[in-house]
């Protein structure tokens, strides 16, 4: 809000005065609220990782084989892209707090471009899988195929989790565009940047989720020798 908020004063019986925290202009409250919201993200992805681990326990070999098949080069590139985008986001906020609005805006644009790049690479990956006959409700993932159970579920969750992560990236891009609009409108300023702060936090949690998604899907079967184990058991 653009108006000036003047906190109320409460007085105790000895005449000491205490400033009352109102719901207006509560930077810490806004931050706390957003952290709490991020816990819900953690629980959501936590539950999906729980499902993933559930089936990893039941079909350990299938999981390694399926993981081995994923494209580590593209996945790794995406990891680095997201890592750098976390830096640009953080630096942008830093510039904003230091008073450099123009630099902050540049950094946000950089983050948006990196995010779009991430999504494109993700798209290429999915396309590759599709052409290899692996996609939701398609080819090897259909109930009738003789693909081992463990691999079916691995890919089912792979598409679900990377897909949901992608949705978070898209939401992130939308939020950043909104942020740019708010900065241009003078509603997010060097003094009043809780909105920016929280979007930066959001981008970090998106990155954080990827930090676990990446090794769990791409790397656990990294050194797995194909044919070294019989599929299924």
């Amino acid at each position: 809000m653009s108006h000036e908020y003047i906190p109320e004063i409460a007085t105790d019986r000895d005449g000491n005065e205490y400033e009352v925290q109102g719901w207006q202009d509560d930077f810490y409250g806004g931050k706390l609220g957003f952290w709490l919201f991020m816990f819900t993200e953690v629980m959501m992805f936590g539950a999906m990782f729980l499902a993933l681990t559930y089936y990893k326990t039941l079909h350990p070999e299938d999981f390694l084989a399926a993981s081995h098949h994923l494209n580590r080069l593209l996945g790794g590139t995406n990891t680095v892209i997201l890592l750098i985008s976390a830096l640009t986001m953080g630096l942008g906020l830093l510039k904003m707090r230091a008073g450099d609005v123009k630099g902050a805006k540049l950094m946000i644009w950089a983050t948006i471009i990196l995010a779009a790049l991430f999504l494109s690479i993700k798209g290429v990956e999915w396309r590759e899988e599709y052409e290899g006959g692996i996609f939701l409700n398609y080819g090897k993932l259909l109930p009738g195929s003789d693909f081992p159970f463990g691999e079916k579920i691995f890919y089912g969750l792979y598409f679900t989790m990377t897909g949901l992560h992608g949705v978070h990236i898209i939401i992130g891009i939308g939020l950043m565009l909104w942020l740019l609009k708010r900065i241009n409108a003078g509603k997010v300023t060097t003094d009043h940047h809780i909105f920016y702060w929280n979007i930066a936090l959001y981008w970090d949690i998106v990155h954080l989720i990827w930090v676990f998604v990446f090794p769990y899907f791409y790397m656990i079967g990294g050194g797995y020798v194909v044919g070294g184990a019989v599929h299924g058991h």
Partner: peptide, 29 residues
């Protein structure tokens, strides 16, 4: 902290029903 778990469960159920991801469907293990 508890509600997000059911939220994602419902989404997974929707994914299962319409995209066949397999995690709740015994036909896919």
């Amino acid at each position: 902290l508890a509600t997000p778990v059911v939220g994602i469960t419902l989404i997974l159920a929707i994914m299962e029903k319409y995209f066949g991801i397999g995690i709740f469907d015994p036909a896919k293990g």
